[in-house]
Design a protein around this nucleic acid. Structure first.
Lengths: 209, 209
DNA sequence: GGACAAACATACACGTCTGTATGTATATTA
DNA sequence: TAATATACATACAGACGTGTATGTTTGTCC
């Protein structure tokens, strides 16, 4: 086929990424063929090999395609200091994260691919580490905010900020994992807000709110 | 090769299962070859195909090989009513689960294979459902015990048993997932008991213990 | 103790996926 | 506007894994 304009080429590249996301999600990464990806994108394997070195590089391009905009949307909220009570900031962060998850199907697909449809081995061994990094950063942030909450007296005085942060971190990880494995079924999705509320209520002083 | 006695044949079968666990864990399920499994077991593919129909059936045999004994060890503790305070029973259950996880490397390997080295698709689509069932049962049990604790007044009176059960469920899921993805690194392992203690302390009456 | 089948090993045919080499038409540039 | 590199499509060779068919030896049963 003929040569295309640079803009058209970039569009082709994006279509290949979109196709890869769909095919990976449907077949799993290992069982997916570059032929299948190419067909789904309406091109041939030649186009795929032109834009990406191999399946591995295509995978990481697909990953970056959704993770970069996600961080840009999540960070300002995570690092906001507008909330009077630090516990509210944590609660809002949790709520926002699961809201984004609910609103953005492509992010959902990529997370599902990473945790359920990709074997973290060999070339993909770093997939898990990439996935862990945001979680690690989240743990550090939680600890800072909980410490602030303890100083202001807006948290149960007998609680250790670092320990409570780890509890929230495990909670968020578990809830995310549950949502991913259950395919975001309505029953569980409807409980997310209540679960966050319960989780945060456990940290507040029971009598004085 | 010659025919072997039935006992020897069963030993061969078990060796193939052990080899499959090692090879799957090292290469991932999809990238593992029955030739690799056979070589690791010291046999040829002929023996593998004699004992198992294909890779899928070998996988599920490997799964049952560790899950059956695990349930037999875990259930009596989960369903015990010996503890005076129901919250103690929950705490002991959590502790025991992560203790088993720490003691049994083969169970650990299989869980890692299921959650990190297997693409839940096609023939393996039911893997996740199998993995979820114990978790679902655990959630039901938690709710019952929390309800008992609420009736006896050994839990913060403002808490809803079902909601708190879901929080503990997400906590356990998240902690398990974290341990699996971090390869049971010492730093995190050392914190497990403290995390469980913190998690349970959140449910008790802060003043009256 | 002979017949039979168990418990494998060996050999083969088949499809399939990958990477690359080559062809080709056109946007871009000097 | 001629030259060149771009953006692909097409073609090809090679490796690899699966499933099955067949061979071989020996435990087991009557």
């Amino acid at each position: 086929m003929a040569r295309k304009t640079k803009e058209e080429a970039n569009r082709t590249r994006q279509e290949i990424i979109d196709a890869a996301r769909a095919v990976f999600h449907h077949n799993g990464v290992a069982r997916s063929t570059l032929e299948q990806v190419a067909a789904a994108a309406g091109v041939t394997r030649g186009a795929v090999y032109w834009h990406f070195k191999n399946k591995t590089e295509l995978f990481f391009a697909m990953q970056a395609d959704v993770f970069v905009p996600m961080r840009e949307r999540l960070d300002p909220i995570l690092f906001s200091d507008d909330y009077p009570n630090p516990l509210q900031a944590i609660e809002a962060s949790l709520r926002e994260f699961f809201l984004i998850l609910d609103e953005c199907p492509t992010l959902r697909q990529v997370l599902e691919i990473m945790s359920l449809r990709c074997e973290n081995v060999d070339q993909f061994a770093q997939v898990q580490k990439e996935a862990d990094r945001p979680g690690d950063e989240f743990l550090e942030k939680l600890e800072r905010v909980y410490r602030k909450a303890a100083l202001r007296g807006s948290m149960r005085p007998d609680l250790d900020p670092a320990a409570v942060a780890r509890d929230t971190w495990a909670f968020a990880t578990g809830l995310l994992h549950a949502l991913l494995t259950r395919g975001f079924e309505a029953k569980l999705k409807a409980q997310v807000d209540a679960m966050i509320a319960t989780h945060m209520a456990l940290r507040r002083c029971p009598a004085s709110g």
